[in-house]
C-alpha cells in the first residue's frame, strides 16, 4: 500500500469517524453535566455567560460525563508523567491486566486447539462435547467470575491464575469453534490424495489439516485475545483487586471518579487494539510465509 493509499484508504475514513465520535461526546458531556452545573451555580449564586457556562460543564472535577480533553489529560498524567511501576500509573495497571490476559489466552488457545483436534478425530466427542461448549458460553461471565474467584481462593489459589482462568474460559471457545472448521477445511480431493499415500492419521493432521487451518487459527485468535482481555478485567472486579484495569474501574466508581473510569476504559481499549493488531500482523506474516497470494 502506498503512502497516499494509506492516508486515503485508512486514515481519512477512520479519522472521520473519530471526529464524529468526539463531537457527539462533547455534546453529550455538555448535556449531561449542564443540570448539575445549573444547580450548583444557583446554590453558590454565580451568574455566567453562555460561554463561561459551557466551559464550566467541561471542567468539573467529578463530572457525570467527562469531556474528552479531561480524559486525555488524565491519561497523559497517569501514563507519561509518573513512573511506569508506580501504583498511580495506568501502564502499571495495564501490565497487571495484560499478564493475566496473556496467560489466560495461551491456556485458552491451547485448550481450544486440543478440543478441536479431539472433536475432529473422535465422532463421539463431536456429538457430546460441542453442545456443552456452546452452553458454556451462554452462562453470563459476570455470574461465573465471582464463583471462580471465591472457589479458588478457598483452596488457596489467588493472584494471577484465577483471573487468567476466566480469560481461558472466554477465549477457548472461539479457538475451538474456529479450529474445528479449519481442521475440516481440506477438500475431499486433498483427503483422497493423502489416502493414496496411505498417510497415517497423525500425518494427515500434521501435513494437511493443521496447515489448512492456519488462516482460521489466526482469525479465531483475534476474537479470543480480545475476549481474554475482557475476561481478565471482569476477573478483577469481584475480588476487590488492588491492581489492574478492572480495579481502576471499580475504584473509580466507588469514589465517583468518572474521569479515572474513562481513562481506564481508554487504556483497556488501547491494550486491546495492540493485542488484536499484534495477532493480525503475526497472522499476515505467517500467511505470507505459507505462500498466500499478496492481496
Amino acid at each position: 500500500m502506498s503512502e497516499r493509499g494509506f492516508i486515503q484508504d485508512r486514515l481519512v475514513p477512520v479519522g472521520s469517524i473519530l471526529m464524529v465520535i468526539l463531537v457527539i461526546w462533547y455534546i453529550a458531556a455538555y448535556a449531561m453535566n449542564a443540570p448539575f452545573q445549573r444547580d450548583f451555580d444557583r446554590r453558590t449564586d454565580v451568574t455566567r455567560t453562555g460561554t463561561e457556562f459551557l466551559l464550566a460543564t467541561m471542567s468539573q472535577p467529578k463530572p457525570t460525563m467527562p469531556a474528552p480533553h479531561q480524559v486525555a489529560e488524565n491519561l497523559w498524567k497517569n501514563t507519561l508523567t509518573v513512573k511506569p511501576w508506580s501504583k498511580r500509573s495506568l501502564v502499571y495497571h495495564s501490565w497487571i491486566t495484560l499478564s493475566a490476559t496473556l496467560l489466560g489466552f495461551a491456556m485458552g488457545t491451547a485448550l481450544g486447539v486440543a478440543i478441536a483436534i479431539g472433536i475432529v478425530h473422535i465422532p463421539a466427542l463431536d456429538r457430546s462435547l460441542l453442545p456443552w461448549i456452546i452452553t458454556s458460553q451462554t452462562i453470563p461471565i459476570l455470574a461465573v467470575a465471582p464463583m471462580i474467584i471465591v472457589l479458588l481462593s478457598a483452596i488457596g489459589v489467588t493472584g494471577l491464575l484465577p483471573k487468567a482462568l476466566i480469560s481461558t474460559y472466554l477465549s477457548f471457545f472461539p479457538v475451538a469453534v474456529g479450529m474445528v472448521k479449519g481442521l475440516r477445511s481440506p477438500d475431499i480431493l486433498h483427503l483422497d490424495l493423502m489416502r493414496t499415500y496411505s498417510a497415517t492419521k497423525l500425518q494427515l493432521l500434521w501435513k494437511l489439516r493443521i496447515p489448512a487451518s492456519v488462516p482460521f487459527f489466526f482469525t479465531s485468535m483475534k476474537v479470543a485475545i480480545a475476549a481474554s482481555l475482557i475476561g481478565a478485567i471482569v476477573g478483577e472486579l469481584p475480588t476487590g483487586a488492588v491492581a489492574g484495569i478492572g480495579s481502576k474501574l471499580l475504584a473509580g466508581s466507588y469514589y465517583s471518579q468518572t474521569i479515572d473510569i474513562f481513562a481506564a476504559l481508554i487504556a483497556g481499549s488501547i491494550v486491546a487494539i495492540m493485542l488484536v493488531s499484534f495477532v493480525d500482523i503475526l497472522g499476515r506474516f505467517v500467511n505470507a510465509r505459507m505462500g498466500a497470494k499478496q492481496s
Binding site: L189, H190, D192, L193, L208, P211, A212, V214, M290, G291, A292
Partner: peptide
C-alpha cells in the same frame, strides 16, 4: 487427479 491438487502452502 483431474485437478493438480497441489497444497497451496507448499
Amino acid at each position: 487427479f483431474q485437478q493438480a491438487a497441489l497444497l497451496p502452502w507448499r
